[in-house]
Design a protein around this nucleic acid. Structure first.
Lengths: 145, 145
DNA sequence: TAGCCTTTTTAGAATAATTCTAAGAATAAT
DNA sequence: ATTATTCTTAGAATTATTCTAAAAAGGCTA
């Protein structure tokens, strides 16, 4: 893909306005970069920075940013969506014990579709990988007991 | 008293009863093996075979069978869960144009985790892959226009 | 077979995340 | 400045799913 230094270089939302509310929501996400909050959790944190913000706005902002490709929406089962500002291609791992979500990156030189037998002509726009299991920390804790 | 074959040999639900309702729900799924119906869609089809069946029962049956590992629950974004009786490891592909869901199998000798840089000690119990894009049929249709 | 216990089904109420609505506020365009 | 567009907001509405409590079905033992 060619160099696309456009408006997006200045404003990660491209044509969309970077409003105060959107900034707050984005800041909340970046701040807690590792912890994948739900919309309601974002709402609680955003209220600390801007008490007047509403839940609907948080939903709007998250949706806008997801569309704009600035944040990623993580859906595990049918639980509340979670959001993260990690733009690198990555999978999400949910630990069944500590119930935390971890990002898992790609190995060097690997494409996420590698193992899959894609039919000829199938065009992939998006690939979403959710894993579930026990994280290293919890696994270690278990074997110590 | 002692049966020479284990229950699970006869009954894919193991210890759980294969009730009339469960049979109907399972049959509906196997029949439409390729089309990944939602619970409501299963309900509509099940009613044709057993008019007295209730939606709650369909949900119960689907849950039971998912637990038993006889069917797979497919969650795309936050849309209604879909169900399929394909037990082979496979990914799900959603075509943004015809809005159908396709199963995508693994290449020979590939593991679904291959491309991912899993931290040492991380135990994977389940891996879920959802793709989104344009299916070969729709892609072909587009280039003909 | 009767009696008892557990599992399953059922209709309808309840829940919870998300989206919608409509009006007002903020920003941009003319 | 005026107008047009985009955003925000509170609260209502939606929707898939789960819960509840009672009735029915199925299995087990005597």
């Amino acid at each position: 893909m060619a160099n696309n230094k456009t408006v997006s270089e200045k404003n990660p939302l491209g044509d969309l306005r970077m409003t105060k509310q959107r900034k707050v929501v984005y800041d909340v996400l970046v701040e807690g970069a590792k912890d994948h909050p739900t919309a309601s959790e974002v709402f609680v944190r955003a209220k600390e920075l801007m008490p007047s913000i509403s839940l609907a706005t948080v939903y709007n902002c998250l949706e806008t940013m997801t569309q704009a490709g600035v944040v990623t929406q993580v859906n595990m089962d049918r639980e509340a969506s979670r959001f993260c500002p990690n733009l690198q291609p990555h999978a999400h791992f949910f630990c069944s014990e500590c119930e935390e979500i971890f990002d898992v990156g790609l190995k060097e030189k690997e494409a996420p579709t590698t193992p899959w037998a894609l039919p000829d002509g199938m065009e992939i726009d998006q690939l979403l990988v959710n894993m579930r299991g026990v994280c290293p920390k919890c696994a270690a804790k278990n074997s110590n007991n």
